[in-house]
């Protein structure tokens, strides 16, 4: 199988896995509201992006790793698995920094990527996609933004599954050595073309479904978000992160 086909298949696999339905990790009485989780995750990524030193990132990363370590085993493996590719990719593209005499830059950027992806992976483990879009609306993000994000992600998941299935079929069909490379290239093009046509079909079907159900693009969260004591404790992480951020910035400059 040639490299293009492997890439198409890998992309399909990743997108397919993103569609997995997350399960609640805590008992219902102790469950933290999705909006609290999302707010804390956003703040964590924001502070991480703004920090100009490795200490804040390293500190938050240590806490996130401890949180990951205490997850159920399957969740832990899934969360860590999602960080592998982005971290390797970041290491690869920041490698020149080592040769230009700034290995610290490579370490800091890689840690920032690891932290950001791990935050999202942990949020993904705790929330279903529906809960995530509901929480985005509760955070007063514009409906058009939530709709675009929702449809894009769902579309990508469906196309990922489709591409994965078709690529597997092409892989099984492809036999022979180098002489058959034109057939394999045709296979890659065919998968991409077929996926494109499939995307048009599902886009048209989605539009029809929206019209039939009078969906005007406005996402309404059916449940009212009520914050409990557990949420208050969870949200205390935000001032704690802000404090650590200020401390690190002051100490390092």
């Amino acid at each position: 199988m040639d490299f293009d086909l492997i890439l198409v298949r890998l992309t399909g696999r990743i997108l397919k896995d993103e569609g997995r339905t997350a399960g609640p990790l805590a008992a219902p009485g102790l469950r933290i509201q999705p909006v609290s989780r999302l707010a804390a995750a956003f703040c964590c990524i924001l502070f991480c992006a703004l920090s100009r030193n490795a200490v804040f990132t390293g500190g938050v990363l240590a806490v996130l790793l401890l949180r990951t370590a205490l997850l159920p085993e399957d969740s832990m493996r899934r969360a860590l698995g999602k960080t592998v590719l982005p971290v390797l990719f970041t290491l690869l593209i920041t490698l020149p920094a080592v040769f230009t005499g700034s290995p610290g830059t490579m370490a800091t950027v890689t840690m920032k990527v690891l932290e950001s992806v791990l935050v999202l992976a942990l949020t993904g483990e705790a929330l279903t996609w529906q809960e995530t879009t509901g929480a985005l609306r509760a955070l007063h993000l514009p409906g058009i933004f939530v709709m675009t994000l929702d449809m894009t992600v769902r579309g990508l998941v469906i196309l990922g599954r489709y591409a994965d299935r078709v690529t597997e079929a092409v892989w099984l069909r492809t036999v022979g050595g180098r002489a058959q490379s034109s057939v394999r290239n045709a296979g890659t093009g065919g998968v991409l073309g077929g996926t494109f046509l499939h995307s048009r079909r599902i886009a048209a079907a989605t539009e029809e479904a929206m019209e039939c159900r009078c969906f005007d693009g406005e996402y309404r969260d059916g449940r009212k978000t009520r914050l409990h004591r557990a949420d208050a404790l969870y949200l205390l992480m935000i001032p704690a992160m802000a404090g650590l951020f200020a401390l690190c910035e002051r100490a390092m400059h």
Binding site: A62, L65, L66, A69, L70, M76, R77
Partner: peptide, 14 residues
């Protein structure tokens, strides 16, 4: 402490 404990648990779980 957090980093060390986390790494040990993750290492043994993997």
């Amino acid at each position: 402490a957090a980093a060390g404990a986390a790494l040990l648990i993750i290492l043994f779980r993997l």
